[in-house]
Design a protein around this nucleic acid. Sequence first.
DNA 1: TTGAAAGCGCTAACAA
DNA 2: TTGTTAGCGCTTTCAA
Lengths: 344, 344
Amino acid sequence: MSNAPPKSITIRDVARIAGVSVGTASRVINDAANVEKSNKDRVLKAIEELGYVPNRAAQGVRGKRTREVGIIIRDITIPVLAGFVKAAQTVFEEAGAVLLISSAGTRRERELELLEQFRKRTVDGLVMTTYDENDAELAAARHRLKLPVVFFDRDIDGPEDCVVVDHFEGTRQATSYLLGLGHRRILHITGRMTTHPARARHEGYVRAFADAGVPVDPNYIHCSGFDATTAFRETSARIGQSDRPTAIIAGGIDMLPGVLKAVRARRLRIPEDISIVANGDSDLAVLATPSVSVIRWDYEEMGRTCAHMILEHLDGEPSRKQRKIGFSTEFVVRDSCAPPPDLS
Amino acid sequence: MSNAPPKSITIRDVARIAGVSVGTASRVINDAANVEKSNKDRVLKAIEELGYVPNRAAQGVRGKRTREVGIIIRDITIPVLAGFVKAAQTVFEEAGAVLLISSAGTRRERELELLEQFRKRTVDGLVMTTYDENDAELAAARHRLKLPVVFFDRDIDGPEDCVVVDHFEGTRQATSYLLGLGHRRILHITGRMTTHPARARHEGYVRAFADAGVPVDPNYIHCSGFDATTAFRETSARIGQSDRPTAIIAGGIDMLPGVLKAVRARRLRIPEDISIVANGDSDLAVLATPSVSVIRWDYEEMGRTCAHMILEHLDGEPSRKQRKIGFSTEFVVRDSCAPPPDLS
DNA sequence: TTGAAAGCGCTAACAA
DNA sequence: TTGTTAGCGCTTTCAA
């Protein structure tokens, strides 16, 4: 409980008790092959007796590897992202690595800061998203780390591995479904075109219109941000107008609360007055009245995949080729969509 | 991008370029007072030029302090807990410390494991919850770390600081409110009595009944677990019986989804057939139909408080007296409660 | 297979 | 105020 550093048991104590040299003790700890059984047992016994624990910092100084992996996400309070992190963490933990978790929000400067932080912390690898896939300064800051990086839900032309979601297909399906119900004024709110999810969703939206032979009205496309605040603001603004949308696709994982609040405030009924589709499943989507149709995918499996990819970099032979792994989406129909009201 | 450790720039390089000794360079890096301005500037310039970053591991070996703080929570995917962690993290980051986040779920063995992990990682402090406030083995494992510990929402007789929520008053208020509406069969679901939140809530519940002069029926009290699964199971079981409750208090921060699912499955109407009160606010409570009355408190401020308390241990003089800090609750009335139906 | 010893990058005690 | 140097706990040569 004291502030003073606990005087610790060192490898020297272990060696002394076991009656071997520190070199031998070290070999046992790192289970090298060439240690005589009897010595090994004595060392193991000494370790047990003393409750010895290798000092990670000291191991790190010599070995240069910290077995710490950084992760940069948008916001840990977004449930699906928390699930992603949790799943990744489980994998890392089993591999004796530890996760340093941080949130960049939707701020470019913050991402730069974090990259610098991780440089100081000398992590061994990074799982991250990024504000802008094409930002040269961000890329430079990343490369300066000289670290294995795995992107999730970002599609980057570079040396980094990418784990991406097939948002194109998800949004295409949802849009087709709404068009099929008779909707024409479908509001699509998503992030800026500098990241894969926004771009892919937008393309899926456009494709569905093209497939249906319906012209796209850019008036119903808002690509300004992924966050809940943006969702509320954009929805509020658009549903207050006379040419208000008859359906909304919330193109971001934490947009549903904002959209719902805006719709409630305007006293529109779902789905009679307006239909809703969200991205990413949640308790809210399931338990809202009516329940909300969603485009969903397996965020936890993505977390595990990202973790495994980093671990392969840490433990495996250094392979230089970039890898891209895709995750497919599923469109879940619930009760939040109906044919559009007659607004004529 | 390589797996090979980047050959790094050391303090010696900095000293050489700046034309000073490593001692002086070290002093500048740790901004000690007694360095001549001109030397300091030269060192700073050299650091800048070289892009030098102190090796944390090496600093840790010598100084014994890692400026890493561990945190053990139940589950990062519970939104209020994620908010707690995020707020704490912000404080730590500003202080140049880094958070190692881990979840113990509701498993005692897992908590023991994590404690051991943190011992290996040689963190400087721990913010945690615990499975059982009176478990001697858990306490022993904690003390073995010889670390400053801050508990949140646990009330421990020991050397550790505690930051606790006034669940007694929260649940007392909610129970009084329901009693006032005419309810008598109020189901209280919460965790086992081995932790402060469960105990305090239970006492608040009992006190409200006593104040109203109504006898408590133990049939309506279930103290088996905090988690969502338990909430669903207990609710389902109880509302299927003929003496079913007319109101439910969900005495845990992630119970609302489970309770709501069970009630929906049974096709009971809220609040006509059954009234609901939840612990901890959430998007779901706000946006459910009807919106759900909650007992809430400021989880983020708690996170900041816990972080500050640990930092005081790390940076301040070692003070030995245990501190307890309380957080008050607020009862927010929404639309999920009404007088009980006539079940006679 | 083992032990001795040389560092890893850094801090802190000691002299100057 | 500075430089020199002895470690911190560990890994990893290098000889034996």
